[in-house]
Simulated scan of single mutants.
Amino acid sequence: MRAILLVNPKATTTSERARDVLVRALRSEVDLSVRYTRRRGHATALAREAAVEGVDLVVTLGGDGTVNEVVNGLMTATSAVGEAPTAERLPALATVPGGSTNVFARALGLPKEWPEAASMLLEGLRLGRHRTIGLGRADDRYFTFCAGFGLDAAVIHRVEEARRRGRVSSPGLYFRAFTAQFMFGAERRHPAIQLEQPGEAAEGDLASAIVQNTAPWTYVGDREANPNPEASFDLGLDVMAFRQLGVASTTRTVTQFLSSTPNPHGRQVLRLHDVAEFTLVASRPQAFQLDGDYLGEREKVRFTSVPAALRVIC
């Protein structure tokens, strides 16, 4: 089996020695080459090349951003005869968690720490264990576990700016960013989003929207955050939108999706389950994120579910 390991050298929870251990372990199972990402978007190009070359397996060592780039590289590759990608034609994906949160890997049931996760993946390779998962697509970009339009994306933007100034990613940093955006952002005072589905009446005056391809949406330390607890890699997309961002109602909703038995509900909550296609349209630009990476502002994003898109080792 030909495999390529794509390493984000800035991965926050692994060292050079740990990477060497992983490389030796993988080489005991597969014919492995190693590539290091050098810039944003580099993993996409490397994964696309691997798919075109007919590599059997792509392994990532990094966080959710690295996984997202690799998935986009695989899903936009074509074969030598110009065929569109299918799960059977594409390389399988294995992800070793190396970031600060690793939502995708943990949603697949992998351990949070990379040595245990790597051991589980090696066992999966020996046994031929894999599953085929669906993905989400926002316009022309794929995502594995979540997207955000409005408040949560603006919070991620604040966190990314703080990290560029040298701050360490932590639940406390996210809480401070959320508090600042909630209090001073425009989302709370002027809801501007409309959700449109084919053949359905539009839902308007929404303040913010969270889209999930699986559950959980994210983790707060070891605690799952589940705005859409029924979301699944095996179904369409789930949506939870805030109609208003009042202090009392928002606090209640956040408490609900942080509960051990999450079921967000209330007059200010809109939830949709297993949706194949919808569009979010805003009357002014909204912050936008995919898989925890801030991608700027948009006024319109079309979301589609892509079933049975990719094989993953787990």
Results as ranks from 00 to 15, higher is better:
P171K: 09
G109E: 15
R163A: 00
L74I: 09
V220E: 03
A47W: 02
S305F: 12
G148T: 04
L22H: 01
P171S: 04
V96E: 14
N228A: 08
P264K: 09
M75G: 07
F278K: 03
D56T: 05
A51L: 02
A153P: 03
S260M: 07
L125C: 05
V81R: 14
L5K: 13
S100C: 12
A282V: 06
G166E: 01
V103F: 11
D234S: 08
T95K: 12
L32K: 11
L6Y: 06
A51E: 03
N228T: 11
F288G: 01
L121K: 12
I156P: 00
A105Y: 15
D238K: 05
L173A: 00
M120G: 08
T76W: 08
C314T: 11
A45L: 11
T12K: 10
D238E: 02
Q256E: 10
T78H: 13
D291L: 13
M1A: 15
L151I: 04
D20S: 05
A50I: 05
L46P: 01
G185Y: 04
M240T: 01
E299L: 09
S79N: 07
L280Q: 06
R40C: 02
R188S: 04
L108E: 15
A84V: 09
T60K: 08
F104Y: 14
S249I: 01
P115K: 13
R131N: 07
M240N: 02
P229D: 03
G41N: 08
L122C: 04
A215F: 07
R39V: 06
F184E: 00
A201F: 08
F288S: 01
A192L: 00
W114H: 14
A47Y: 13
F143S: 04
T132N: 11
G128H: 13
R189K: 11
D20A: 11
Q244R: 15
R165D: 04
L46W: 02
F178I: 00
A209G: 00
R27S: 03
W114E: 07
G99K: 15
G204F: 00
H42T: 05
G63W: 10
A231Y: 06
T13H: 14
G124A: 13
L6H: 11
T60W: 03
F149N: 00
A25L: 09
G65L: 12
S119N: 15
M240A: 02
L57P: 02
L270H: 05
T95P: 02
A77I: 06
E230R: 13
H190F: 00
G236Y: 08
I133L: 15
V103G: 06
Q256A: 07
I193F: 04
A84Q: 14
E200C: 04
E49F: 01
L270D: 02
S259D: 09
V55K: 14
Q268C: 01
Q289Y: 07
V211L: 09
Y142L: 06
R129N: 10
K112S: 15
F104I: 07
L57F: 11
H157N: 01
L6P: 02
P198K: 07
A138L: 01
A282R: 03
F175T: 02
T86Y: 10
L90P: 05
T60I: 12
F182E: 03
E299C: 05
N102G: 07
A118M: 15
V269T: 01
